[in-house]
Design a protein around this nucleic acid. Sequence first.
DNA 1: CTGATGGGCCTTTTT
DNA 2: GGCCCATCAG
Length: 731
Amino acid sequence: MTSAIVDGLNEGQRAAVTAPPGPVLVLAGPGSGKTRVLTHRIAYLVNELHVPPWRIMAMTFTNKAAREMMHRVEGLLGGRVKGLTMGTFHSICARILRREAERVGLTRDYVIFDTADQRALMKVVITEDLNLDDKRYPPERVLGRISNAKNELIRPDGYRPSDYFDEIVKRAYQYYEARLIANNAVDFDDLLMHTALLFREHHDVLARYQNSVDHVLVDEFQDTNAAQYELLRLLTARSKNIFCVGDEDQSIYRWRGADYRNINRLRRDFPELQTVLLEQNYRSTQVILDAAQAVIDRNTHRTPKRLFTDREGGPKIVLYEAHNEQYEAEFVVEQIALLVKAGEAEPGQCAVMYRTNAQSRALEDAFIRHNLPYRLVGATRFYGRREIKDVLAYLRIIHNPDDSLSLMRVINTPPRGIGDKTIASLQAWAESNGISLFEALTQLSSDPSAGPLDGRARRALGSFAEMLNGWRAISRNMAVGDLLKLVLDETGYLGWLDDGSEQGRERVENVMELVNVAAEAEDLPLQEFLEEVALVSDVDTLTEDVNAPSLMTLHAAKGLEFDVVFLVGLEEGVLPHQRSIEDPDAEQMAEERRLMYVGMTRARKYLYLVYCFRRTVWGESSVNMRSRFIDDIPPELLVPPHAAFPGMPDIGGPPRRMGGPPRVRSSAQMEIDLGESAIRTGMRVLHPKFGEGIVVASRMSGDDQEVSVMFDEAGLKRLMVSFANLTVLDG
DNA sequence: CTGATGGGCCTTTTT
DNA sequence: GGCCCATCAG
């Protein structure tokens, strides 16, 4: 019996899958079969321990991972598994909150505000509620602090300001929460915080969930934050059946509150915790593993792991210096074409990964130039596009009329003669009567004597209100797709979008795409449709049915694998990102290193590391050093492009200087060296004011050279060589 | 009230 | 280089 489930698993995996009930932590390297362990564990619980599927809850990082895992569990158990809860933390919390909405001051019709909605709402808070300048107090910065607080489960009244800015943040937080509730809305962080606090503060609710959920499983445990951890802790406090899978070396979400110290908390809160270590890798060749290991080994404070595989050897890793990002993209496309032609890879098994979304443009251009299809993950999020947000705003008001933010968004989109002044007096009237914007609108249109405004403005508002109420009346009995078509039809939105320009056509197409999505979701209630749309992640859009290379950020690449992986933009300032170089907190640099590690370990067979001599950022071209991470890789593992695989033609230009001792000068520095400045990276210099320091970075800025110097006393400074009066001590 | 124009700021990374 | 926003003329 057992054999059916654990067949083909190695010893470690088997130990994890068949561990007796109780807290279990599986610390596993990349490609060690984490997903496999998780799916087999679920199958084991159901089949061997006879746990009813509806008493099992599994949290994943993306919806895609949830879908895949569900699929595999069904494969193992031979059919549909009824009632098994599987999803992201956010979607599971959204579902719980829908049932318990009243407890946190919402109704079950609440909507989820995305990043853009949050920013818009915060802008109102800062400029109107607090009467402050949103230049001095940028909404994003305020929201950033609030987000951190929420992830730590700190409510407005518990917020402890540590500086003046924080004082403002605290007040903004108070108004912001009030406005969210007034809109019957939550933001992403609220989904977690509300649910965790609900469990913490309402013992009857917690008891109900504790009694109905016997086993909780968590994927990517290293990337959980305090709120998520609290949720897990409370949920499993009675059963103790918590099964976590993670890898601290792949923790790449510290910036949004993820805290891999949760691993220590787990040990503390569940003393009987069983830990299983998985080090065998089934994905990559030994060459790739050795290189990745060399990169990650430089991080301190980690549980040492020694990755191994029986896939001995493997092709060497290709290192290539491109002239600029256009050539870089050109190189990638060329190599993919060659690999495919040589039968070494399928197009769909190739992926290009980069640090920031902005880097996708040059790559896309190259693919388009060569008339080759590609799959872009993320970038300008489909659901972030203006036209999509507009159309969704209509659906959101229909579903939740308290959503004043959405109402404001479309009250005059497309233009229907409701201008700023009209809106202002409507808002003022609503506020003085203590009613929502929608309520005000409805009252104005049904009672001609009520409120301010007359004539044209009033007629415009009236017909808009009528339209909204008409949709609301029939929406319950209508499929989402049909409702959407009705809205588009009655507002004339598409006609307004299509202004004859190329962009207009594109926007219409996007909306039509949304209509398709809605039509496919025919049996989904409006609430769930909106929820799904708000919580899709970038990787969720990665479709398997197109055999084309994928382009994505390193963050989006987590949990995926490909035969061929290109890591591009491996330059100081890009990866590691400039912000982490400047930050004194070494943790940020450590995270960049983990990002590199995640990228490298996505590759099964071929790994390409590519960097640029010059790169254009914001229309300005500059020269960067190649990434320090490259120089951590043993040189004997690296080869130039023409040696990539047998039969590879020598098209990569003359072989570049490969490997060598760390901090070797790339030709990027050579050019600067030949200039008159003669300041190079690695040199010790003396500055009249800052004292002695070492040059850590250098780039050309216009005609001048800009250097970053880490001074022994004064710390990191950026200086222009022509002004700085630096004396070279040694090179 | 609408559409055009130019300035400012920008790029981490995402649910 | 591009997007968002504020400002202004019609």
